[in-house]
């Protein structure tokens, strides 16, 4: 896929659950922009004032654990974040992220990346570039079945195309 994602790094720790990403009281909402206005409200209220289009979340292990709420990756994506790089993901969050067009990859070296480092993810070459530190890391692309969904912009446009719906 000939695409690259660019932005500054926002660091998070281990086991950030979907309730920290978007508190349970907002799960009654469906509008992604409204969800984004409450992203990380309880645990990192300063986040949404600082995030700019394209920025990248860098997290520890088990990111997105807990509830299956797709509201979580949607709140992240519509806040401006283009991708999440984590040591590991909870399964449903990872699947949801790709399904709604938020790129997500695992990288064992996330601890080396610092807050505000300028990061590029090169999807074509499977490379994470840390411009601030002058480092590069290879990563494994998601499985083809997921890349195909991501390439269409998510599972909704993918399914529309599959069913020949406009």
């Amino acid at each position: 896929m000939n695409k690259s994602l660019n932005g500054k790094a926002f660091k998070f720790g281990d086991d950030v659950d979907t309730g920290q990403i978007i508190p349970g009281k907002y799960v009654v909402l469906t509008d992604p922009n409204e969800l984004a206005s409450h992203v990380f409200e309880d645990v990192a209220p300063e986040f949404k004032g600082k995030v700019e289009m394209g920025d990248i979340i860098i997290a520890g292990k088990n990111f997105g654990t807990g509830s299956s709420r797709e509201h979580a990756p949607k709140a992240i994506k519509f806040s401006g974040i283009s991708a999440v790089i984590a040591k590991s993901f909870a399964r449903i969050f990872y699947r949801n992220a790709i399904n709604i067009g938020l790129f997500a990859i695992t990288l064992p070296q996330v601890d080396e990346i610092k807050e505000n480092d300028q990061i590029t993810i090169n999807l074509n070459e499977g490379k994470v570039i840390n411009h601030t530190q002058g480092k590069e890391y290879k990563f494994d692309l998601p499985h083809k079945v997921m890349l195909d969904i991501f390439a269409e912009g998510g599972i909704i446009p993918f399914t529309k195309k599959e069913l020949n719906l406009k």
Binding site: G66, S68, P73, I100, T159
Partner: peptide
């Protein structure tokens, strides 16, 4: 629902997905 795995107790394959995937 993430806790869909509950039903595995009864000898079936049960797992959770998100809303868009369910729509699909």
């Amino acid at each position: 629902d993430s806790h869909t795995v509950t039903e595995g107790a009864l000898g079936l394959f049960a797992t959770g997905v998100g809303s868009s995937e369910m729509a699909s």
